[in-house]
């Protein structure tokens, strides 16, 4: 059966309208439920950095979050930004911009090295412009901070910072919770988009995450050193020390991504951490 061109065009036009209408209807009808489940997912991820939420029901997570978490947004200099809501900040979008800055900084570091070796003035200038543009990107970025209060009152028991980075295959992300001295890690929660199941995907497992608990991000001299996951698994705890955690065998590249992610974001929050620390010292005096 051979239909005329007119029939084919009319048929496809009607099909397009019907299918498009159905899609639009589904999208609109399901949007509230989708937003709710995304919100629930984010909140349970934030909470899982400081407490175990696996046994909690959906409503319990939401009320627990409301009662125990307060949030604010800061910029890279640690100044609070008033007109931003921490829960609404898209960390993924922020990361994509910051990743550009990270690349520029790496490039700049290479160029500076080259300039030092050869005395090349142009490379030095190029490095400076790269650093400037990286700084400009960082100035504009938003960094949410979540404060966790365990009991009643205003005492902050933990600061939770979102982190974002690249794993082996795709993005990795998570939350790092610091005790109120802003040095000891209270807990972490990690997620990933497409790491290898059973290997890199293990960063979401409780036994891997709990390796970070109790580690410190500052050296004794007060310098930010971050925490790195080493290569290989089964390293004895006393050999690792306070700034290293045991690795995941077969997933060194994912671990490298985690290390880079933590180091980059802890540096972004460094000014805020410093300010909080000095503020606390003043309050204590």
């Amino acid at each position: 059966m051979r239909q005329s061109n007119g029939y084919v065009i009319i048929f496809t036009a009607i099909l397009t309208v019907v299918v498009g209408g159905a899609m639009a209807l589904t999208s609109v009808a399901l949007k509230p439920a989708q937003q709710k489940s995304i919100e629930l997912d984010t909140k349970s991820q934030i909470l899982s950095a400081v407490t175990d939420v696996s046994e909690m029901k959906n409503n319990e997570i939401l009320t627990f979050y409301k009662e125990h978490i307060s949030s604010l947004v800061v910029d890279v200099n640690g100044e609070e930004i008033d007109d931003a809501v921490a829960e609404k900040v898209n960390v993924n979008k922020q990361f994509r911009k910051l990743f550009k800055a990270q690349k520029q900084r790496r490039e700049a570091a290479k160029l500076t090295q080259l300039a030092e070796r050869t005395g090349d003035e142009e490379a030095k200038k190029e490095a400076e412009t790269l650093i400037k543009s990286a700084e400009a990107i960082e100035e504009e970025a938003l960094f949410p901070v979540f404060k966790y209060t365990e009991g009643e009152g205003d005492n902050v028991d933990a600061y939770i910072f979102p982190v974002y980075g690249n794993g082996l295959w795709n993005n990795i992300f998570g939350y790092i919770a610091l005790e109120n001295n802003l040095n000891v890690i209270k807990g972490v929660s990690f997620g990933h988009v497409g790491e290898t199941p059973g290997l890199g995907a293990r960063i979401t497992n409780q036994d891997v995450k709990s390796r970070y608990n109790g580690k410190t991000i500052f050296s004794d001299a007060g310098e930010l050193v971050s925490v790195t996951m080493v290569k290989g698994e089964g390293n004895p705890e006393d050999k690792l020390g306070p700034h290293k955690v045991d690795g995941m065998s077969g997933a060194t590249l994912t671990a490298n991504g985690v290390n880079q992610m933590l180091e980059a974001y802890l540096h972004y929050y460094l000014d805020y951490i410093d300010k909080k620390k000095s503020g606390e010292v003043q309050a204590a005096l």
Partner: peptide, 16 residues
Amino acid sequence: ASLVTIVSEVLKAYSY
């Protein structure tokens, strides 16, 4: 494609 999109959207809404 339409049916798959519906499945995917429902999954996103009720089993994130």
